[in-house]
């Protein structure tokens, strides 16, 4: 059931604008090249050949926040790092999404002390939380696919 079957003879396909835009967004969602702790190792593993996130249109980890759509907060966020993280988030162009990868960035994890922010959702708005310490690459990819599902469900008024 490919596109070519719908094309007919006219070379035209009709679709809802929402579907097309959301399709485009999910198929090329570039994450930011940015890791804070041990979760970043698993993020790299998810990016590498065995798991290969480029299957989901994420082959490019952009080293600049201005070119990225997705922030994967991989690791614990210290209170000194929190303003830096927020600044990176503010520099990303809309539309932008955040995945809190692992227990530490989701809720503080094993840390309960003065230095670690208990949950990065106090600093940036989080779309998907991925549990695990650290999550396996499958876990991260599941989180990314969950985010794709969320993006596909977005409606026109959500963008405005």
């Amino acid at each position: 059931m490919g596109v070519e079957q719908k094309l007919g003879n006219m070379g035209i396909v009709t679709a809802k604008l929402e579907d097309v835009v959301n399709w485009a967004r999910t198929k090329a969602m570039w994450p930011m090249l940015f890791g804070l702790a041990c979760c970043a190792i698993e993020m790299m593993a998810a990016q590498a050949a065995n798991y290969d996130m480029s299957r989901f249109g994420m082959e490019l980890m952009r080293a600049s926040p201005r070119q990225s759509d997705l922030m994967i907060v991989a690791g614990r966020v210290s209170r000194k790092m929190a303003p830096v993280l927020r600044r990176l988030y503010d520099q990303m162009p809309d539309p932008k999404w955040v995945i809190a990868m692992g227990d530490c960035s989701s809720c503080g994890g094993v840390f309960n002390n003065y230095a670690i922010v208990p949950g990065v959702d106090e600093v940036v708005p989080v779309d998907v939380y991925v549990a695990g310490c650290p999550p396996r690459p499958e876990g991260l990819i599941h989180g990314i696919l969950t985010l794709h599902e969320k993006v596909r469900g977005q409606k026109l008024p959500d963008w405005a």
Partner: peptide, 22 residues
Amino acid sequence: LGHEEIMFSFNFDEINARKRYA
């Protein structure tokens, strides 16, 4: 020691109600 109370399932609703999300 800790700065904020940690969320568990038994106290999630109570903390969630006053937690300030970004």
